[in-house]
Design a protein around this nucleic acid. Structure first.
Lengths: 224, 224
DNA sequence: ATCAGGCCTGAATTGTTGTTCAGTTCTTGA
DNA sequence: TCAAGAACTGAACAACAATTCAGGCCTGAT
């Protein structure tokens, strides 16, 4: 054998794989999942259509991995924000705010990851993504309950409902399209966060403080 | 001219159109929107594939009309339930409960109408459907606010968020699949309704009364 | 420089459904 | 019973993207 998997080759292969995934992500961010088609993605990544299949067995696998990747990033951001908060309640508020800020600042991508029609089956991947995020939120609610800040409740159901509220009101078809205006965006984030927190039993007065605390730091995540 | 649109003919045509729509609805209720394909629907309706196109210009039109029809039914049910309630707050509770009961008792259909990927563009129709339902809920929230039962708020956003919470937690991919057990179903409806009402500012103690009042009558709508 | 071996290319293939339409069947009024 | 006109049939067509693969290209060891 005269051709071997040199370190350099391995690195190039990994870079290419990453380029394809990034191309897919960019396409999704620009035009939603509908724009994630093999040929255009290949062009974006500077490879031929066939090459995509050397890295991903099928389009379903490509999109599944895209969903998983975005999900991982989001989960990490949520954890970071929540862990930086001083107590369970503000951790929950920070987590919720982080989700809100993320989805509102990448609406097309969020919509694609969450709910946009795709021609291949990515149910499993979407399910896993939701489970991860909902699990994290559920845990934060639970912590607040254990700390006596919230009434006892079905935290898994609450987390799911809460995410549904955020998603529908910020990236759903009825979401107000304040395309850019940062002020309106922040208002929307605040309003919806408040609503979500009230749903799980956070008292109004307290919530306002938590939300204000949470929104400002989370803003810095937009660029990340 | 020797062939004319006799009353009998008109009736038969209307019946056929209705049969096709019903076939589509049944297919959607059984297998989601994915099952609404021209050929199978035609078989169900006892017509040939081509005949469908004498009644609906395209598949998109067929599905759009299906969505509109289901939406009309739901809106009517919501109004009926809310109008029968003694006051604004219980009207809101009744409206929310009605939505919850409907979606949970026809999950596949609801998922198809609301969010399931479809290969044709039905965005406009889905948007209209959401607008109608959200508008109704928004109006009910507004009435409760005007009655002084709820704090002032962006009722449109609240209605959207509230519906998102209901849908995601009852028919979304993370919804607990208590396939049949009526007890569990009622529990889920109650829990989520309570959560939704809290989100818009209904006080807990009061909410329990409202929810219990609302769930029982709404149960009778399942069969309708 | 050489060549073995995998990597990349991109045009052709495949598969899936919505849609069409020429021919057939049915309905109506005379 | 018959002619005119409309509705129905269902096989053929069209369109669109995902997927394949034969041939060329590049990389790395000798």
């Amino acid at each position: 054998m005269v051709y071997r998997r040199t370190h350099q080759v391995v690195k190039r292969l990994a870079a290419r794989r990453s380029a394809i995934l990034t191309a897919a992500r960019d396409a999704a961010a620009e035009g939603g999942m509908a724009a994630v088609q093999i040929a255009p993605v290949a062009v974006r990544a500077n490879v031929a259509a066939g090459t995509v299949y050397r890295y991903f067995p099928s389009k379903a696998d490509l999109i599944s991995e895209l969903i998983a990747e975005v999900s991982r990033d989001e989960l990490a951001a949520i954890r970071r924000a929540a862990d930086a908060a001083p107590g369970p309640s503000s951790a929950l508020a920070a987590a919720v705010t982080t989700v809100a800020v993320h989805v509102i600042s990448q609406r097309k991508l969020a919509w694609g990851i969450l709910a946009e029609p795709v021609d291949v089956d990515v149910t499993a991947s979407r399910l896993a993504s939701r489970r991860e995020i909902a699990g994290e939120i559920s845990g934060r609610i639970d912590a607040a309950v254990r700390a006596g800040h919230l009434p006892a409740q079905d935290t898994a159901l609450a987390a799911t409902a809460l995410l549904g509220a955020l998603h529908e009101s910020l990236v759903g078809p009825l979401a107000p399209d304040n395309t850019d205006d940062p002020g309106r965006l922040r208002d929307a984030v605040q309003t919806v966060t408040l609503l979500a927190l009230r749903a799980v039993g956070v008292m109004d007065a307290r919530a306002r403080g938590l939300v204000v605390q949470a929104v400002l730091p989370a803003k810095t995540l937009v660029g990340a």
